[in-house]
């Protein structure tokens, strides 16, 4: 089978699965962000199977799907931070998936497969968290009353849902990840 077509359909199906899982929100936070049932897992699978360039493309496609299925305009004070927040929250945050594959393949040389999958997954979540953390600072620096540390607010707000999501994904990746991934890479 032609490799390019297989890549297209496989990543498209993983995108569909990620979009579907993002609907299963356990709860929504008031200012954007929600705990979903591991909606990043299918994208992690793509990152583990394909090279970083292709994973980046899939990650970009996912951020576009997120945008066209309900764009949440960030309440910023000027155009520059508006663009920065959109890029951070939508594009760069998921761009972390390009790195997930690199982490995974590096870790795999020394660690068992399940541990590498969980660790690189959690690292990807951590990078995504850093993106949301900075965008939070950009938005909220205006609102936080003087003397109140904005970074603490952003840390708690974004950390709370990202940690829960990372935990759900880690449990799934640890228990069912390797067998599913081997099946996926064998395709």
């Amino acid at each position: 089978m032609q490799k390019q077509v297989a890549f297209l359909t496989q990543s498209a199906m993983m995108l569909a699965l990620a979009t579907l899982l993002s609907f299963f929100a356990v709860f929504h936070l008031p200012n954007g962000g929600s705990v979903t049932l591991g909606s990043m897992i299918p994208l992690l699978f793509v990152a583990y199977k394909f090279d970083w360039k292709r994973s980046l493309l899939v990650a970009f496609a996912y951020s576009l799907i997120q945008m066209i299925s309900g764009f949440y305009a960030p309440p910023t004070q000027n155009l520059l931070s508006f663009i920065a927040v959109v890029l951070l929250d939508y594009v760069i945050a998921f761009g972390a998936l390009g790195l997930a594959g690199l982490f995974y393949r590096t870790l795999l040389k020394k660690l068992p497969q399940s541990v590498s999958m969980v660790t690189s997954g959690v690292m990807t979540y951590a990078i995504r968290f850093i993106c949301h953390f900075f965008s939070g600072i950009l938005i909220w620096s205006f609102y936080a009353p003087a003397g109140q540390p904005v970074w603490l607010y952003s840390l708690v707000y974004n950390g709370s849902y990202m940690a829960l999501e990372a935990l759900i994904s880690a449990i799934f990746l640890g228990l069912a990840g390797p067998r599913l991934l081997n099946r996926f890479t064998a395709m």
């Binding site: 032609q2 359909t9 496989q10 199906m13 569909a16 699965l17 299918p42 449990i171 996926f184």
Partner: peptide
């Protein structure tokens, strides 16, 4: 979170299979 595994695993497998079928059809 653990109870999701019996849902997610078959869902993944079925998505893999669909990807295969679709690739074949496109080819």
């Amino acid at each position: 979170a653990k109870s999701l595994i019996p849902i997610l695993v078959p869902l993944f497998i079925s998505a893999f299979r669909r990807a295969d079928d679709l690739a074949m059809a496109m080819e």
